[in-house]
């Protein structure tokens, strides 16, 4: 007979070198975001464009039935890369993406800073990289739901509705475009959000910054562009840069008259800058000199 010993008991398992040590951080991050008030409602709202575009795809296959509603204007219902580009780069979607970031991203690092939780993370075999990956993956999760997933769904449904693979044969690279663009904007916004989230301890302040900096850059570039009549000032706008690169990825004419790789350079530069600041800000203890 054995009697369970009182007091502290050892754990008889083995600690593992997880392949994805950041995964728990992501899982908790996603769960905590969903717990926020109104978030589900709001997130549903963000999926409205995706639904509209999906209906569009359906209609495009049944054009005859809907002719009476269209009054001849059916060009925009042509499901081609432009159709995809329009979805991915429309102002409303990008705006909603930023609002999602306010919900899910503002507190990612700011809350940990506020509640001294960073030392709990870094007292464990977790590298800075793992921590940041875990937090960034939360943003990836939410943004993929409104970018990558709808993109793939559109292609799938187009094929299903059409009943043949002609669409796929015409644009075999489209799926790659969808993936590349989704990864691009998600990566960018992940860096952007984490950067802002790491510079304040106060969630309110970070929320305002995430929203404000985005809108601000847009207004600022619009004003300059208006004065100088030069499209180069669109490089100041986060939104325009993303739209510019997006157009190229979908093999469309760029909306503005500037080389697309300038925009890409701006985006990459912001990401690198963010990475540098994050490396400074995220550490086990706050060092006050």
């Amino acid at each position: 007979m054995t009697i369970k010993e009182r007091g502290y008991a050892h754990w008889d398992g083995e600690l593992q070198d997880g392949r994805f040590p950041w995964w728990p951080i992501t899982r908790i991050g996603i769960r905590l975001t969903f717990k926020r008030k109104f978030f589900k409602f709001f997130f549903g709202f963000t999926l409205i464009p995706a639904l509209v575009w999906l209906v569009g795809i359906y209609v495009s296959e049944r054009l005859e039935d809907f002719k009476f509603m269209m009054e001849g204007e059916t060009d925009f219902l042509n499901v081609n890369p432009l159709y995809f580009k329009t979805y991915f780069t429309n102002d409303f979607l990008l705006f909603m993406v930023v609002m999602i970031l306010v919900f899910c991203g503002a507190g990612l690092i700011a809350d940990d800073l506020r509640h001294n939780a960073l030392q709990l993370y870094f007292a464990r075999p977790l590298k800075k990289r793992d921590y940041l990956t875990g937090k960034a993956a939360v943003i990836f999760f939410f943004l993929f739901i409104v970018t990558l997933i709808p993109g793939i769904v559109f292609i799938l449904f187009k094929l299903i509705f059409a009943g043949n693979f002609q669409f796929f044969a015409s644009y075999p690279w489209l799926i790659l475009s969808v993936i590349a663009y989704s990864v691009l904007i998600t990566t960018f916004f992940a860096f952007y959000t984490l950067l802002l989230s790491s510079i304040g301890k106060n969630r309110r302040y970070v929320s305002i910054l995430i929203f404000g900096v985005y809108i601000f850059s847009d207004i600022f570039s619009a004003i300059f562009k208006e004065i100088f009549r030069s499209h180069y000032f669109y490089l100041l706008s986060i939104k325009s840069n993303l739209q510019q690169v997006g157009a190229v990825l979908f093999d469309q004419r760029t909306p503005w008259n500037i080389p697309w790789y300038y925009s890409l350079t701006v985006i990459i530069a912001i990401c690198l800058f963010s990475a540098y600041i994050l490396k400074q800000r995220v550490r086990g203890v706050e060092i006050i000199k």
Binding site: W11, G13, L15, Q16, D17, G18, P21, P24, I25, I28, L120, Y121, R124, P125, L126
Partner: peptide
């Protein structure tokens, strides 16, 4: 969560 971060299944 903290246990998982240390490498527990």
């Amino acid at each position: 969560y903290m246990g998982e971060l240390s490498g527990m299944p």
